[in-house]
Design a protein around this nucleic acid. Sequence first.
DNA 1: GTCAAATTAGACACTATTGTCTAAAACGTC
DNA 2: GACGTTTTAGACAATAGTGTCTAATTTGAC
Lengths: 237, 237
Amino acid sequence: MRNPKEAAHKATGPILGHTQRGQCSKRLSILDAAAEVFCREGFAGASIDEIAVEACVSRQTIYNHYREKETLFTAVVEDVMNRTNSSLYSILATFPDKPDSLEDDLSAFAVRLTKNCLCNQDGKFLRKLVQSEGERYPQLFEGWRKHGPGKIGTALAALFARLSYGGALQMEDFDLAARQFLALVNADLQILTLFGESPTDEQLETAARNAVRTFLRAYSAPATNAPASQPPVKAVG
Amino acid sequence: MRNPKEAAHKATGPILGHTQRGQCSKRLSILDAAAEVFCREGFAGASIDEIAVEACVSRQTIYNHYREKETLFTAVVEDVMNRTNSSLYSILATFPDKPDSLEDDLSAFAVRLTKNCLCNQDGKFLRKLVQSEGERYPQLFEGWRKHGPGKIGTALAALFARLSYGGALQMEDFDLAARQFLALVNADLQILTLFGESPTDEQLETAARNAVRTFLRAYSAPATNAPASQPPVKAVG
DNA sequence: GTCAAATTAGACACTATTGTCTAAAACGTC
DNA sequence: GACGTTTTAGACAATAGTGTCTAATTTGAC
């Protein structure tokens, strides 16, 4: 789902959608529908006709824009990856720099992350498709590995490093802490998302709060420890 | 892969396999091959002929034993689920009751869990298939949800409760702690397993050690808290 | 209104797959 | 060695999907 307008179109059903959307953006319509169907059926199970119906477009139009099924598939993956990456970076920019309450601010950050990246439609798409088609298209998802969870991991690690030098956290391996932070946030969520359910806002907040509390119990600097003595940054390998 | 003998058969290739295995157990041969192919290709992408070749069996034999493709699929899922469940229970029985070193014993336990349940061929199969076909066959994987990670969670929670009452751990929500323990153990592993790679023993041990140290920093009882601060072992990725 | 480009429906050939059927072969048991 | 069962190879119809082609229609720009 690309934006609220299209969500509204989806809601009205395919009948009205025909002329509702400017014909200049059939490509977007196709990409959205294809993402939906590929996610639901997998690459092999998805049929071009099904995508055409869902996109309110003739099959031939799909073949005009994207030469063949595989071309369409890679286009969809790259589209979703780009959207997710940009969303990811804008969220990373909201990381609590000088936190008022570390627990509250980290929790809110974790909620933003899960709600807009990890647990939304795009996140579900990437999770499913990387899992089912990742081995078949290694170079296609290599970008996801590097710029998706890979990048989020190193970015988070850098942010944790800043908090450590500021004296709020105490840890030796920032990358490890970042991976564990993400793992803890997902701990309560993955069972829900595995079955396609979208967690409610309340569930997201509970999961984030639980994760952050445990994370801080493990990594918050002891109150007695002055922020003066900090371990040196270990080179990231 | 059902047992070492069959692994040997696989290694010799399909040519000799024909008569090598007693014909009484064609069913097992079919189940193994079907698991392999379903896991690799997904339900829609897997073809009966492909399974037949991999099982060194004629297509008709498959239809004799399992009426249709979907019957075979559910049989495979139930077979893998049963195997995983029994393996799971035997591993849960090895949970450190009266631990000598909590860190060492919990780490060793986590390694057993990942090596024999979560990261082996069956674990990969279930993860992939639950993800890709879980929404299509909800009742089929409902058992997995309850008796797989659901059961492992509650079982672990009970074991953590015992350790807590024994004074080794301190926590309020045992179920939450169990989910977080599993999440932490998977933190370093899921990126590897997502792309089909099997973690080495060394990676498994490192991941377990990292997880357990963070877990204990968050949850070990205050008395034993002092000597718990150690540098983490180096990262897996 | 005109025109070029985009879109459409539908037919089409081609391939792959499912599931059935049959007759021959292999097997295990006696 | 004989017999009933299992397995096998192959042909087979039926179905579904991919990708192409064409001719008609719609669209947007002028």
